[in-house]
Design a protein around this nucleic acid. Structure first.
Lengths: 151, 151
DNA sequence: TTTTGTGCAAAGGCTTTGCAGTAAC
DNA sequence: GTTACTGCAAAGCCTTTGCACAAAA
């Protein structure tokens, strides 16, 4: 199924901005993108899309279940492609690196803790803030960030 | 140790706003308060404190380790008294209720997951979003919220 | 043609900051 | 008397919204 078909099947018109944003998420190696990341990336590719449109499309995609939105600690919201595989996140507070993990036992305990109190888990990633053990954090700072690297 | 002594021992001048805000957290049954909650509560007690001061004091208290700041999903930041007891949070997406929990096994797994990838856990509460199982959520909506109940 | 989407600029919500007056030490 | 703190209003940051134009169906 092409991006276009996927959009149609959701009742969304197939427009330039929507197609470009969707492919951006499908192609990029950077799995978690903010509205500004998307905006700047499109600009750098000479795609003329307004920031407001980016916000609107990201919101629509989230509501359509294509993307998942995250609010990591202090930062702006970021989105990732929703592949249907529930997972949690490991966030390096030093380099901003994001890794995913899944631990069946943690899932089980969560469910039990909630159930014991009369609640049901609402699907949502856990955010696990960590710091790198080495002083020179070996992880690159945002692989190819579209953010604040002014020469 | 009085609130005043506690402030002095942190190198902070003992001022009206600081004392009032600190006692608010010590006395209230509502453990998690936003800046606006604090501001409105003080107003309702005829304490004349500016919102900017509330923000500044909350930030100072957090940096001093008196308070812990949380950013639950979409909401504004909330603070709770830092009693030194690490715990995680259960957040009802229906009624806004906040419960605390601590699960040694989850702690253990977190540590292991991080260590296996060369990270060390940075102390931070886990947020577990849940919904109540009964349709008529039995939990009151924000015990005595200082928020949006305009008659 | 009808409907939905888009860009721009303006506005919104939460938080921070500049500044001159004020209180703590 | 100094220095730190406060209140107010203004500004900042991220995000949303109003509106007229443009593109999709």
């Amino acid at each position: 199924m092409t991006s276009g078909d996927q959009l149609k099947s959701l009742g969304l018109k197939v427009t330039g901005p929507r197609r470009k944003i969707l492919s951006l998420f499908e192609d990029t190696d950077r799995s978690h993108l903010s509205a500004e990341d998307v905006y700047k990336t499109l600009l750098s590719e000479h795609e003329d899309v307004g920031l407001a449109t980016v916000y609107r499309v990201l919101t629509q995609f989230e509501q359509a279940g294509i993307l998942t939105r995250h609010r990591f600690d202090n930062d702006k919201a970021v989105y990732e492609l929703n592949k249907g595989n529930h997972h949690d996140h490991l966030l390096c507070i030093q380099c901003g690196r994001v890794e995913e993990f899944y631990d069946p036992e943690i899932e089980r305990r969560q469910k039990k803790i909630a159930a014991d109190r009369g609640f049901r888990i609402h699907d949502h990633s856990l955010y696990l803030y960590v710091e790198c053990l080495r002083e020179d954090c070996p992880h690159r700072r945002h692989d190819g960030d579209a953010g604040e690297e002014e020469s």
